[in-house]
Write a protein that binds this DNA or RNA. Sequence first.
DNA 1: GCGTTAACTCAACTTTCTTGAGTGTTCAAG
DNA 2: CTTGAACACTCAAGAAAGTTGAGTTAACGC
Lengths: 391, 391
Amino acid sequence: MVTSLKPQLGANPERVRSHNKQLVLRAIRHVGTAGRAEIARASGLSTQAVSNIISDLLNEGLLVEQGVRSAGRGLPVQQYAIKPDGGYAFGVEVRPTAVFTALVDLVGTPLVTHRTPLADPQKATILETVCAQLDETLAKTHVPKNALMGAGIVMPGPFGDTGLTGTESELPGWNTGDPAEIFANRLDLPVFVENDANAAAMAERMNGVARGLDDFAYLYFGQGLGLGLVQNGQAVQGAFGNAGEIGHITVVVQGRPVELESATSRLSVQAHLAGHGVTVMNVDDLTSLYSSANRHLFVWLDQAAQALSSALSIIENLFDPQTVILGGAMPDDLLDHIIARTALPERSVSNRPDRKYPRLMRGTSGRMTATLGAAALVLHQAFTPTIAAAR
Amino acid sequence: MVTSLKPQLGANPERVRSHNKQLVLRAIRHVGTAGRAEIARASGLSTQAVSNIISDLLNEGLLVEQGVRSAGRGLPVQQYAIKPDGGYAFGVEVRPTAVFTALVDLVGTPLVTHRTPLADPQKATILETVCAQLDETLAKTHVPKNALMGAGIVMPGPFGDTGLTGTESELPGWNTGDPAEIFANRLDLPVFVENDANAAAMAERMNGVARGLDDFAYLYFGQGLGLGLVQNGQAVQGAFGNAGEIGHITVVVQGRPVELESATSRLSVQAHLAGHGVTVMNVDDLTSLYSSANRHLFVWLDQAAQALSSALSIIENLFDPQTVILGGAMPDDLLDHIIARTALPERSVSNRPDRKYPRLMRGTSGRMTATLGAAALVLHQAFTPTIAAAR
DNA sequence: GCGTTAACTCAACTTTCTTGAGTGTTCAAG
DNA sequence: CTTGAACACTCAAGAAAGTTGAGTTAACGC
């Protein structure tokens, strides 16, 4: 039973340099600003090698000098930082009714974000819309296309024909061909495709509460509920890109089995409130319901927290993450409320006395979470050494 | 919130060579025997580079020539294969009542296996026993110590003080200090520590039904139930090494929530049978009960299969593995029976028409599964390129 | 038979890293 | 105030690994 060997790249001078460059960028990004010697120690390279690489990066416009810092004895340190306009990333979130786009700079600051309603969810329409948005965004911001390092695309999973197909708010026509390749050809850019939860998780790791974390889980409240997993600094995609479909597992709430997604998701809260005659159209409606202490909403929140507690037990015991982050298209207030009410399972490997992070944290939320996450995929790539890259 | 940056190695000539060597070994191992040009294509190196590396590996005794193969036109291919006695790995499984050890060669063939009862489960006693077994094994097989590439150690988790502590058949005194370091110092060898499930999974990947798979899950029947996860060819350890503690999650059987481990584990079957007046002492007893079609055993098997079906739904939807493997200290017959009776969840990302592997497979079983898995950890290391190593 | 195909080797070249000596700045001890 | 240690960084030489392109050998097919 011989399967194809994943193309694991051998190292040659060119690839070594590229690898080390990214290592240096990564080290600088991690601490904000750094000097040559410091980077050398962190990377296991000689200071001379680091010096040469930094000189390269300065020429390429990826770094800026940040003045000197005299730290104790010795020659003061010439510091360097990532140059924000050294590169840009385009983030795209495709939903059945609209396409969201964002342009972010090298340090992750969004320059523009945009929502384009979709006339129809056909493949051609989507490609056309994304393409047009890219051009428009570049024109508006005067960012040259060659400064774009790539595009991240968030699409609703699952990918391919699976047992969950048909149950999702799906996009027709994407089950044939590799979406990444299709977009890459159309946009003429390196493209990275992920599901919303993984993208949001990577964004959190690049610029959110998960900065510096290498092992964590992210529960993403979207239409349904998704689980983003980061292991060893890499998003876990699974064999076919469908890892993290946590919404359809069965958990126990008040002794009764329920589908997780039916208890904790945007659809779930809408359905629950509709059952009590309350109509919510969007996230803002939820916020006002919450501030007016709507009884039905509070009932739902409590029940969601109970379901979440079961899910937490599974996530923690299966992944042993540093922390679990809650985020997505849900108002902060509600997330905070749920977090406060979620019982942290006693019988969990995460129930340890020497924790550095809370077991449950709130991440970035809001409508653009996944879109910015899409852009973060590109940034993540730019700061990840390439030799023997775990994809 | 700045955390310590994982020491990601920069590439220098020495590390590049080591990386490429392992890449070549890996490519050869993957296909059994291979020629230079073939390896060059697979690794992205030039044939000249591969030639030089192979010449090195021949000198080091890690490869043997395997004669020529004339494949179509052109000069016949000089083939190479891994030299079985090119290196050895020592595997250790520590249990509260005994220590199991095994010596395997570079291709994974076990030379000797041994069980040493433990007078007491104290740390010092264990270290002493392992050390003595290593010496004895080397003496018996006339393998020089410098041919040993390392030792793999399997210890019952969870590691550290967690919410599951105290519920396991535990070893006292290992919560302080890093077990890997302690063993490494004592044995004077590179040491890799894992839990039983992950080790068994790696063994399956090196020489079992998971050969060539990079993303799969392994359910290990031990005292309890453990989940080994392989993602992108690497074992998932979690932030604190405790990933895969699936035994304590709650699943639903016949509409009622139960702890998974209470339904599917060696302890569970023993308890169930004891409740009906049947005493089983070991794996052989189970085999004979099965061949005599014991009614109580069959009831347990059905119930275990139902619990497993719930677990499968969780594993598949969270990891999207290529397959899920069942193995461990359970007779083949019983595993096969359970697999046959386990309902494959419909609503799963793994329920896809284009599958190459069954959703549920039986892996290696038997008493030495984890011990050989421990040795496989060392082999895995030897065939894994080191630059930017994912640990 | 003879040209084509393909694997492999040899020798020259390139890239990148490391090493060790040297420069400049800061701090602290005498 | 002087002197020396500590530290960051640069320069130039050297080493290690990979690549390139020409040349050799062997099998196949027309």
